[in-house]
Amino acid sequence: MNEPSCLRLYREGKLQERIDRALALISPACRLCPRNCRVDRLAGKTGVCRTGDKAVVASYSPHFGEEAPLVGSYGSGTIFFSSCNLLCSFCQNFEISHHVVGLAVEPSELAAIMLRLQKQGCHNINFVTPTHVVPQILQALPPAIEMGLNVPLVYNCGGYESVEALKLLDGVVDIYMPDFKFWDNQWAERFCHIKDYRERAKEALLEMHRQAGLHRLDE
């Protein structure tokens, strides 16, 4: 694959603008995702995702359970973020998504994790459940790039996204992996306590497609 998109934005000096705009979505009233909790996360307040100003990393490692084109020979470099904006009652990662477990990391520490996975041979950096930590991911990219990050970025999410937030990732994310969960909102309300999953996820999928297009595979 060609160099990751974020390198071009970094060279053009545009990443800081994205960071500033992303931070404005979580303070003084968080509207980063469709939950619109309206809490000041930079002041330490938390909403549904129970995440303040720092991302919490539950675990990270080369992962071989993703789609084959991502796994390759040495694995997809997955970073599992703690908590979630959906909180599905059936989540297979319940302990991670429903509890804030792991370590709160500074941008430089998240950057170091990316580099560690890259040095292990991972073919990409795979952000798992990243919706509620978009600003923190963006903050970590400049130091990661300065330390040599040069693999594609994967946004592996639950589909309940804000188009405004996704637009900040245009030219940053190389591969989107949304997990579309519900077509009928009655099930979204039953399992996630949200009434507009279908509408918001449809909008998000269209924005992801606008940015990245359909998947393309070579030999």
Rank of each mutant, 00 (worst) to 15 (best):
I113L: 10
G47W: 03
V100I: 15
C6W: 11
M208L: 10
G13Y: 11
V48I: 14
N150L: 07
P142W: 07
N85Y: 05
T51I: 14
L103D: 14
E66Y: 10
F180W: 12
G47S: 03
D218A: 12
L217H: 13
T131V: 02
A104L: 01
L86M: 14
P142A: 08
K14T: 00
A68D: 13
V39Y: 04
P135R: 05
R216T: 13
Y197S: 02
G158V: 08
Q16M: 13
G121C: 02
A112H: 13
E219M: 10
F182R: 06
V101T: 09
E95H: 12
Q186L: 14
V173N: 04
V154I: 12
D218P: 01
L138M: 01
R200F: 11
H215V: 15
D196K: 09
C88T: 01
T46H: 01
A29N: 02
R31T: 14
D20S: 15
R18G: 01
Y160P: 07
F64N: 01
C84T: 02
P28N: 12
E199T: 13
L214P: 05
A104K: 10
V151S: 08
D184P: 01
I26W: 08
P152T: 08
D174P: 05
H209C: 06
H209K: 15
P34G: 04
G148V: 07
A43K: 13
K45M: 12
V134E: 00
W183S: 12
T46E: 09
R116L: 12
P4V: 09
N150I: 00
Q16K: 14
C192P: 05
V128L: 12
L70C: 07
L205N: 11
C33Y: 00
T129G: 00
G213E: 05
D218I: 10
D170C: 12
E203F: 11
R200P: 05
G65C: 08
L86A: 08
P152S: 02
L32M: 11
K167H: 14
A201G: 01
G47Y: 06
V57I: 12
L117Y: 00
R8I: 11
V172P: 02
D53F: 04
R31G: 08
V172G: 04
E17S: 10
G47H: 00
R116T: 14
M177T: 02
L141D: 10
E219L: 14
H215F: 13
L23T: 00
L86S: 04
R31K: 13
L15W: 09
L9F: 12
D53G: 14
V48W: 14
G52I: 06
H132E: 05
S27A: 14
M147F: 09
F191T: 07
C88M: 04
L141Y: 06
A55M: 13
D174Q: 05
V154N: 00
R8A: 14
V105G: 01
P62I: 10
H209V: 10
G171K: 03
V173H: 04
S82C: 07
V48H: 15
M1R: 11
E161F: 10
D170E: 15
